[in-house]
């Protein structure tokens, strides 16, 4: 999947690993994930401040190819900031972030290229308000990936069908429900064939009856081997789809583990306290 022009020697530490398509029934509709298990996103000692506020404290986090990582923690603990630093919507002061073996570029065209490989789904959907659903999905492929309009539209319609909003293709975002908009946002990200997708509380702006339709799409992506970092408090989804849960508090990663271990046997007092609060809701 990696851009051939960006193929540097350190991209290929071993022999090229054949694509693992076993257990990936719908692989055609999702970018193929080469070499599962390799580190894809590597954060080392990342620190970030907003003024005096130390929002990210020495974050070390590695996300492997095909892995689904849930980030959980109290409000204000830095989960959104963590997501946003990974595709550099936020800068950071020290430490390093590598995506697929390449450090995050500072600015300019290199950074734009990197962002194209990192999908981002926002809490508030952020569909382009003046463009139709179809245009929302084709804009990136046409402008960034330089696909033809026809090819981009064909693929966009496939992706829209996949997330169940193909009948709304010619409408504008404001005409869709929140759940539909968020599914379009996922399709818009998928259209770029991202190496990894970041979800920042994708269901917390949705009415309860729409949460399931979005989580279902995300679960199927996870099953197909998409690498995902998901900030969410949806425990059902975490149990179903996640390989690992990362617990953040006050800008630091306090503990991590499998969903089962974390939810049934949290180690730190803060995690216990936090789980107690969200479970009693």
């Amino acid at each position: 999947m990696s851009d051939p022009s960006g193929a540097t020697p350190q991209d290929t530490p071993g022999a090229p690993v054949p694509e693992d398509t076993a257990g990936v029934p719908e692989a055609a509709s999702v970018p193929a994930q080469a070499a599962p298990g390799e580190p894809l996103v590597v954060m080392k000692g990342v620190n970030k401040h907003f003024g005096d506020l130390h929002v990210l404290k020495d974050i070390d986090l590695t996300v492997h190819r095909g892995e689904v990582v849930i980030v959980i923690g109290p409000s204000g603990s830095g989960k959104s900031t963590l997501c946003r630093t990974i595709n550099r919507l936020e800068t950071f002061e020290s430490g390093s972030i590598e995506i697929d073996g390449k450090p995050l570029p500072e600015e300019g065209a290199d950074l734009a290229r990197l962002r194209a490989d990192v999908g981002m789904v926002f809490q508030s959907f952020n569909l382009f308000a003046h463009k139709t659903i179809l245009q929302n999905v084709t804009l990136g492929p046409i402008k960034v990936r330089k696909q033809s309009k026809e090819a981009a539209e064909k693929r966009a319609m496939e992706l829209l069908a996949r997330v169940g909003v193909d009948h709304q293709a010619s409408k504008y975002p404001a005409q869709l429900s929140g759940g539909q908009q968020q599914r379009v946002a996922i399709a818009r990200s998928l259209a770029m064939d991202p190496k990894v997708m970041l979800f920042d509380e994708p269901t917390s702006a949705l009415d309860p009856e729409m949460i399931t339709e979005v989580l279902d799409v995300m679960t199927s992506l996870a099953k197909e081997g998409m690498t995902m970092v998901v900030v969410t408090h949806e425990m059902g989804f975490a149990n179903r789809a996640a390989d690992r849960v990362v617990f953040m508090s006050d800008g630091a990663v306090l503990e991590q583990g499998t969903p089962k271990d974390f939810f049934t046997n949290p180690q730190t007092d803060r995690a216990k306290d936090f789980l107690g609060k969200i479970l009693t809701h």
Partner: peptide, 19 residues
């Protein structure tokens, strides 16, 4: 969020301005 979404799909500054 409009500009952030534009940047996150890889549009350059000029492209996100124009589009």
């Amino acid at each position: 969020g409009q500009a952030e979404a534009a940047r996150s799909i890889g549009l350059t500054f000029g492209q996100s301005l124009r589009e």
